[in-house]
Amino acid sequence: MARRSVTQLGENESINEVYIASSKQLRPNRQGNLYLQVQLSDKTGIVNAMMWNANDSVYKRFEDGDYVRIQGTSQYYNGSMQVIVSHIEKIEAKDVDESDFMQIGPQRRDELLQELSEQLRSIRNIHLRNLAECFLIDEALIARFRTSPAAVKNHHAYEGGLLEHVVSLTKVAKAIVPFYPQVDEDLLVIGVLLHDIGKVDELSSDKGLAYSDEGQLIGHLVSGVSIVDQLVRASEKLSGEPFPNELALRIKHMVVSHHGKLEYGSPKVPMTAEALALHYIDSLDAHMHGFDRLLADDVNSDSRWTSYSPLFGRKLFKGGEA
Results as ranks from 00 to 15, higher is better:
Gly160Glu: 08
Lys252Ile: 01
Leu203Thr: 03
Arg304Ile: 11
Leu247Gln: 02
Ala93Ser: 15
Ile15Tyr: 12
Phe317Arg: 10
Glu89Thr: 14
Arg144Trp: 09
Thr170Pro: 01
Leu9Asn: 06
Val83Lys: 08
Glu236Trp: 00
Ser303Tyr: 03
Glu164Pro: 10
Val183Trp: 11
Ser303Arg: 06
Glu202Asn: 10
Ile137Gln: 12
Val18Gly: 04
Glu111Val: 15
Leu316Trp: 08
Gln182Thr: 12
Gln37Gly: 00
Ala132Trp: 02
Tyr211Cys: 03
Tyr76Cys: 05
Asp292Cys: 10
Asn154Asp: 14
Pro270Ser: 11
Ser226Asn: 08
Asp184Ala: 07
Arg129His: 09
Leu249Val: 03
Gly313Val: 02
Tyr264Ile: 00
Ser122Pro: 04
Arg146Gln: 05
Gln230Lys: 00
Arg4Gln: 12
Asp201Leu: 04
Tyr67Ala: 10
Gly105Ala: 11
Tyr308Leu: 05
Ala296Asp: 15
Tyr308Ser: 04
His279Asn: 14
Ala296Asn: 15
Lys318Gln: 07
Val222Glu: 15
Leu231Tyr: 00
Gly240Trp: 10
Arg109Tyr: 12
Glu13Arg: 08
Lys268Asp: 14
Leu238Arg: 11
Asp66Asn: 13
Glu164Tyr: 07
Ala234Asn: 06
Arg69Glu: 15
Tyr35Asp: 01
Ala273Ser: 15
Ile46Met: 04
Ala143Phe: 02
His287Asp: 13
Leu316Asn: 07
Ile142Trp: 09
Glu17Arg: 11
